[in-house]
Amino acid sequence: MFMKKIVDDARICLLKQLYRYYRMGVSCLLLSPTLRSILEPALSSPSLEISAAEGDFMSVVDLDICGMTEIFKLSFSPKDTWEFYLYLKSINTLSRLLLSPYQLLTLQYCTAETLVHLAFTMANNTLCCTHKNKNIPYIEELYLEQNVSQHNGDTLLSVSPFVIVEMLSVLSHYRLSNRSRCLKSLTDLQTLLLYDDGIYVPLELRDLSWQILGICQHVVGDLHGALHSYEESLRQQPYNRIKEATQIRIECVKQQLQENIEKVGLDLIKTCEAIIQHHKPDPIWNPQAKRKRGHPTDYCEVLCVN
C-alpha cells in the first residue's frame, strides 16, 4: 500500500508506528477518538459480559511448541562459500530490522545453523557425498563411526550441537598448535558430559558424545583418558549403533599403550647402561706386569678397582 507513496525515513517511521499498534493489540482502537467514544460506554457498562471461550485459546507452551516445530523444519544446505556469503549477508540485513520475538528466534536459529555448516566446511574440509538424496557431511575424525553406522543401516549420526562445537574447537586449536585453548575446549567438553543432566546432551545421544570425547583425548595424546571415554561409550544406549567402531578404537588405544610401555622399558635399559658406562672405574697400571713383560711401552695390564 505504501511501497511507492512513502519512502526512506518516513516509511521506517510508519512501519515502527504500525508495529507499535500491532504490539498493543485491540487496545490500539481506543487511540481513535471516534472509536473510543463508541467503545468506552460499552466497555464500562456493568451489563457487558464477555464469555471466555477457553477452547479458542492456546496455552503459551502449545504456542511455543508449534513455533519451534515450524522453525526446526527449516533446512540449510549451502553448497559452496558463495552461498554461505549470501546466507550471512541476508542474516545481517534481517538483523537490522524490527522483528517480533518469534521472528528473532527464527533468525537466531538460522544464524546458528549457517555458522555450524560453515564451521564443518572450513575447519574440517568437509567432504560431501549424496546418499538417498541427502547430503551427508563426513568429518575425518568420525569417518570410522560413520562407516560403521551406515553399515548397520543408519545414514546419519545424531549428536548434540554443543558436543560438535566443542569437538571442532578442540581439533581446530590442536591443528593451529594452540595447546592452551585446545586443552580448555577439551576440559569444557568433558565437563559438559560429566555434569549435564540431559538438557544439552540428550541421554540417548551419549554413546557418540562419549566417543567424540575419547577421539579428542586420543588426538591430543591422552590415551588413558581416551580409553576411559571409549569404555564409557559402550555403557551408553547404542542409539547410533557404533559399537564396532568403539571396540576398534579401544583395541587401537590398548596397542598404543602397550607400545609405549615397551618403549619406556627400552629407554630405561638404555638409560641404565649409560649410567653404568659413565660411572665405570678407571684402569690403573700394574707395575709387576710391566717388569715381567719388558718395556712399559710394549704391553700393559690393568687392574679394575671398585
Rank of each mutant, 00 (worst) to 15 (best):
Gln17Ile: 03
Tyr22Ile: 01
Arg23Trp: 01
Leu30His: 01
Leu30Asp: 00
Leu31Lys: 03
Pro33Phe: 14
Arg36Leu: 00
Ile50Ala: 03
Asp56Lys: 08
Val61Tyr: 06
Val61Met: 02
Cys66Asp: 10
Met68Ala: 10
Ser75Asn: 10
Pro78Ser: 03
Tyr85Ser: 02
Tyr87Ser: 02
Leu98Glu: 15
Ser100Gln: 09
Ser100Pro: 03
Leu105Glu: 09
Gln108Val: 11
Thr111Lys: 11
Ala112Ser: 13
Ala119Ser: 14
Thr121Cys: 09
Cys128Tyr: 12
Thr130Pro: 02
Thr130Asp: 15
Asn133Phe: 14
Glu140Val: 04
Glu145Cys: 10
Gln150Pro: 02
Gly153Cys: 08
Leu156Thr: 11
Leu157Thr: 10
Val159Pro: 08
Glu166Ile: 02
Leu176Val: 01
Ser180Gln: 12
Thr191Gly: 01
Asp197Pro: 04
Gly198Tyr: 05
Tyr200Phe: 15
Glu204Arg: 12
Asp207Met: 05
Leu208Cys: 13
Ser209Lys: 04
Gln217Lys: 12
Gly225Phe: 05
Leu234Trp: 08
Gln236His: 06
Gln236Phe: 04
Gln236Asp: 13
Gln247Cys: 13
Ile250Trp: 00
Glu251Gly: 14
Asn260Ala: 14
Lys263Trp: 06
Ile269Leu: 14
Pro283Ala: 08
Pro283Met: 02
Trp285Lys: 10
Lys290Phe: 00
Gly294Trp: 00
Glu301Ile: 02
Leu303Arg: 05
